[in-house]
Design a protein around this nucleic acid. Structure first.
Lengths: 142, 142
DNA sequence: GCATCAAGCTTGAAACAGTCAAGCTTGAAA
DNA sequence: TTTCAAGCTTGACTGTTTCAAGCTTGATGC
């Protein structure tokens, strides 16, 4: 049995479960916020990652999915008039994605909703800072 | 603009993004570990939650999904000979899910893989304990 | 200049995930 | 025993995601 001989592994398992639980709660939260604005989860993720003009590939990487998937999601956002595909200024192969005025406004509303009542609201400002530090370290390392 | 007048909100946004990033990394990690064993993410989640015999409903709750979805996933696991639907000892309506010997062995391998190279491996034991405390508080509150 | 290969994006097919409504069997309670 | 609720399954449907294939364009080497 690895259980009794390696308590460290057991602790990591438990922590892994906790992070998974939090991740799931956040996923639900994102879906709910997105639904309020008439978006799906994937669309909300795309909108959230659109911090500025970028190419399809960049967006796909930020969403950690295939470019073909990004194509699908951007299609939907474009149909809703939230995003535009423009010609890339220097690379004629690439598209430059730009949020429209409505897209930008909706993005602001989305970010507001995401913060509100988030699963992290139960932590104090100090605790949030601590958590942020740990997360940054964990993410950078991997 | 809420940005300049509310620095607190900006900090929460950043933290929210970090948690989302970690959640995504973990999702990718789970998928990769599952793929090594010939499983999908949902199948791996089900296997991970099978800490012992339980009903379909219990499993669905642990996976935080609908029972019909659990039916779908258990079907796949059953086809692979990893899990069995038995008659429930006291309630004839319910099924009792039990891992087969192969299912149990695969579960052990999965848990091992999940811990290995997890996005949390970059933290010390002490940091992991701190993180665990914060996550427990965040999850309980919401 | 031109051939070749790689990069960026799209398309179509397919699998997977997830919800919802409807239906069946069974348990529990009036 | 009648009625209602619980457990599970099925089927239809939507959304997500991946993969392979194909097109255009950029970059590299001859």
């Amino acid at each position: 049995m690895t259980t009794s001989s390696e308590p460290q592994a057991a602790a990591e398992r438990e922590l892994c479960g906790l992070v998974n639980g939090l991740a799931q709660q956040i996923a639900v939260h994102v879906r709910e916020c997105a639904a309020v604005l008439g978006l799906t989860s994937a669309q909300a993720t795309a909108l959230r990652e659109m911090t500025g003009p970028m190419t399809m590939r960049e967006l796909a990487e930020r969403m950690s999915c295939e470019p073909s998937n990004a194509t699908f999601v951007v299609d939907k956002l474009e149909k809703q008039g939230l995003i535009e595909r423009r010609a890339h200024p220097t690379d004629r192969r690439a598209k430059q994605l730009v949020l429209t005025a409505e897209g930008d406004a909706l993005r602001e509303r989305l970010l507001g909703l995401l913060v509100q009542d988030s699963p992290l609201a139960g932590l104090t400002a100090q605790q949030q800072r601590t958590l942020q530090g740990l997360l940054e370290q964990a993410i950078i390392r991997s």
